[in-house]
Design a protein around this nucleic acid. Structure first.
Length: 417
RNA sequence: CGGGGUGUGGUGUAACGGCUAACAUGCCUCUUUUGGGAAGAGGUGACUCAGGGUUCGAAUCCCUGCACCCCGACCA
């Protein structure tokens, strides 16, 4: 993409009402736009990142047998009444609305019940199980306090997968696979080294759950990390019994602030009992389907990456989720520079490399450098009278201080690697 | 939901109850520049969140509403 074509612009100053680093940088660089408290739109650059993240998640979910669907965001009252979750005393984050005929509807807070209900049309026999279904869908939660930029919003996309198994043993098998898939997601998104499988309370759904917590001061949770074992305990269930059950000891646990980037938990038969999702076993017995629920918020994951991987100049995207792989900067209005830059842009694109080309004219070099650092694309290639005189292209990684001059073959080799 | 705070050009800030609401940045025009947010010149842009009140006089004080931020509680 040519940068002159991009309708968004970088800003020198972040809006005064944003304090969170993720929102400051993402707004300054033109990835997101704030519509109101806790509600953000994704702009071209931000959407590219979200799509990359979703594709990683999609690949990992498909790899463990997930099937993708999209359920509706509008949900009827009857869906949530069997589990008593339509009640505002039970679930206090509903956005509720009505049809013209006064029928009450809710904007999806989550999809456990809807997915369970939907599956009743398809599951009848043990032969139909197990199935694992997921979606990327908008959730609406009327949070009393949105906060921390895109980390806790009132409208957000969530990947939610629901597993439907014949029994607990089959469920556990999938649950373990899901754990590994989740680890892969966070590793691939560039925050694996800071993310810990964390033992936590199950909230409304079950007694315990597993969270994936990424260490950052921007997080809302306190966790106790055992570095050598690579696991942690959430403060909410941190007690002697839990520590002992997990085979940990207080001495090796270190307190950290962290953000929950993923959460998986066992639902057992809570929803299948309530909504009557049953199947016939081989012996003709009727049994409730055994369920699990697995969530990741791509937007929050994006915010977490920014919180964790950035410096005083801007964002530092991991290659896997960067909006583009390489950023070409053309400096000055020299004709030869322009010709060379255009040719490189065409060449890289023809090789399937995602490239942003800063072809904007009348700008100082410093301004282009500053924008490139802010946007945070992994590789920067400078083309200028100087680089041409030195015989090539100056390539620099966002994480490195100094670049080096290379020729076209060396450059494509670096970018293909 | 409890507590604290803030609303001024697109953005960031300033202005004692008293001059035509100032500065920077952005944006437009021209000239000169081009390796770390260039320089000069000229221009554009705000009924100071909304409504009421106090006052000779309100961006400034008071009330109501709305919006936003932070701490806590909550968090499927």
């Amino acid at each position: 993409m040519k940068q002159s074509h991009l309708f968004t612009k970088t800003k020198k100053e972040a809006p005064a009402d944003e304090v969170a680093k993720n929102a400051e940088l993402l707004i300054k660089a033109g990835f997101i736009n704030k519509e109101m408290a806790g509600v953000y739109s994704y702009l071209p650059l931000g959407l590219r990142v979200i799509n990359k993240i979703q594709n990683i998640i999609r690949e990992e979910m498909n790899a463990i047998g997930g099937q993708e669907v999209t359920l509706t965001a509008l949900q009827e009252k009857a869906t949530w009444e069997p589990t008593n979750q339509w009640d505002d005393a039970e679930v206090d984050v509903w956005f509720k609305t009505k049809l013209k005929n006064e029928t009450e509807l809710g904007l999806a807070v989550t999809h456990e019940a809807a997915m369970t209900k939907m599956l009743k049309s398809f599951v009848e026999s043990y032969r139909d199980l197990p199935v694992n279904i997921y979606q990327f869908q908008t959730k609406f939660r009327n949070e009393t306090r949105a906060k921390s930029g895109i980390m806790r919003t009132r409208e957000f996309i969530m990947k939610d997968l629901y597993s439907f198994s014949k029994d607990e043993a089959e469920h556990n098998e999938f649950y373990e696979k899901a754990k590994e898939a989740y680890k892969n997601v966070f590793k691939r998104a560039g925050i694996g080294h800071l993310t810990y499988l964390t033992f936590a309370s199950g909230g409304m759904f079950s007694k315990f759950s597993h969270e994936f917590q990424t260490i950052t001061s921007a997080g809302e949770d306190i966790i106790y990390v055992d570095e050598s074992k690579g696991i942690a305990i959430n403060k909410e269930v941190y007690n002697d019994e839990v520590i002992a059950n997990l085979g940990l000891s207080k001495e090796t646990l270190v307190e950290n602030r962290a953000v929950e980037v993923g959460n998986i938990f066992t639902l057992a038969t809570r929803f299948s009992d309530a909504l009557n999702l049953k199947y016939k076993t081989e012996t003709g017995e009727e049994k409730s389907v055994f369920m699990g629920s697995y969530g990741i918020g791509p937007g929050r994951l994006m915010g977490t990456v920014v919180e964790v991987l950035s410096d005083d100049k801007g964002i530092i995207w991991p290659e896997s989720i960067a909006p583009f792989k390489v950023h070409i900067l053309e400096l000055g209005d020299d004709m030869e520079v322009k010709t060379t830059a255009n040719a490189l842009y065409a060449t890289l694109q023809s090789k399937g490399i995602e490239v942003m080309y800063d072809d904007r004219t009348g700008m100082s070099a410093g301004e282009k450098f500053a924008d490139a650092d802010l946007i945070g694309i992994p590789y920067r290639v400078v083309i200028s009278p100087r680089s041409l005189k030195d015989g090539g292209y100056e390539v620099k990684k966002r994480t490195e201080g100094k670049g080096k001059i290379v020729n076209i073959d060396e450059l494509t080799e670096i970018l293909n690697g």
